[in-house]
């Protein structure tokens, strides 16, 4: 029983960060329809920003988080302006290839700048975990869960309650009509990509100190983000959040009670199952086709 409770606590903490990764990608992949292979690199980038600000500049841990979010936003905007804007209107394969190129180039860039040796970031949290009866959880992970929940809430409000969010939804529903209604469509594309990227960087900045930071850390994170987005339904923020927790639960219980060798296969198994039984995702609304 205590083992099961510990798995549930682990699931909550892990699920929060998966949700954060998922909503960032669902904005870009689900709403903008860009297969964003740079999502994992932006996650890595956010973690390295943490490392620079905290370890190299010696600044405050809590200050480093908004810096990472901002840096992710700027890098995302730069990718959109230089790579995606010139390709707007070209087919999905071309964009995909360009994004794969950007992914490899950026990942090699991080390896070139910081080397392959993993970095770690010191945190202001005590090393002794919080012990609640039979289960224990580190303070850092609780903080990560709280920060992730806050970021998810802010994103939800941004998309659903602000005029920018309304313009975003309108643009991706019908690009031409939105444009006729006076929405600056170019600006919407750039900001959507930048917001999605900043969420990836935020996830990296939060998880970098929990794990260790190295150039390939984003690869597995990106695979999981895609699994979450497909699970929750393209473009569905609530779906991505729930999808994040479902994936975390599947991994925890799969490793705990089935076989730990298949832990990271759970994401793929979920994708396959969803594509077979509910190809539009678990939480997609009924859609009219044509």
């Amino acid at each position: 029983m205590s083992e099961f409770l510990q798995h549930l606590i682990n699931m909550l903490v892990l699920g929060g960060t998966y949700a954060l990764l998922g909503i960032g990608l669902t904005l870009i992949f689900g709403i903008m329809n860009v297969v964003n292979f740079t999502h994992g690199v932006l996650y890595t980038f956010g973690a390295y920003i943490m490392f620079i600000v905290v370890q190299q500049l010696g600044l405050n841990f809590f200050l480093a988080l908004p810096v990472a979010v901002l840096a992710g936003w700027l890098l995302g905007a730069a990718i959109e302006l230089t790579l995606l804007r010139p390709l707007r209107g070209s087919d999905i394969d071309t964009t995909m290839l360009v994004m794969i190129g950007a992914w490899i180039a950026m990942q090699s860039g991080t390896l070139w700048i910081w080397g392959g040796v993993a970095k770690s970031v010191a945190t202001p949290f005590p090393e002794a975990p919080l012990v609640l009866g039979p289960v224990s959880v580190s303070w850092l992970r609780l903080f990560v869960l709280a920060a992730a929940a806050m970021l998810i809430l802010v994103t939800y409000l941004l998309i659903n309650k602000t005029s920018l969010g309304r313009a975003m939804r309108a643009t991706f529903q019908d690009h031409d009509t939105a444009s006729l209604m006076g929405v600056n469509v170019d600006m919407i594309y750039t900001s959507t990509f930048a917001i999605g990227s900043s969420l990836a960087a935020a996830a990296g900045a939060l998880l970098g100190p929990v794990y260790v930071i190295f150039p390939q850390m984003g690869d597995l994170a990106a695979v999981k983000a895609f699994a979450i987005v497909i699970l929750g339904g393209l473009g569905n923020i609530t779906g991505a959040v729930i999808g994040g927790f479902i994936l975390a639960l599947a991994e925890e219980l799969g490793a705990g009670y089935v076989s730990s060798g298949y832990r990271d296969a759970m994401g793929f198994l979920i994708i396959i199952a969803v594509l077979i039984f509910r190809p539009t995702g678990l939480f997609a609304r009924a859609e009219r086709v044509g």
């Binding site: 083992e3 798995h7 682990n10 925890e252 832990r263």
Partner: peptide, 20 residues
């Protein structure tokens, strides 16, 4: 005998099992 993937970053599930 628990295993982990070569790129895996979170081994909490395996360690929870070992803990009990």
């Amino acid at each position: 005998v628990e295993t982990m993937d070569q790129g895996a970053q979170d081994m909490s599930a395996q360690l929870s099992k070992i803990k009990s």
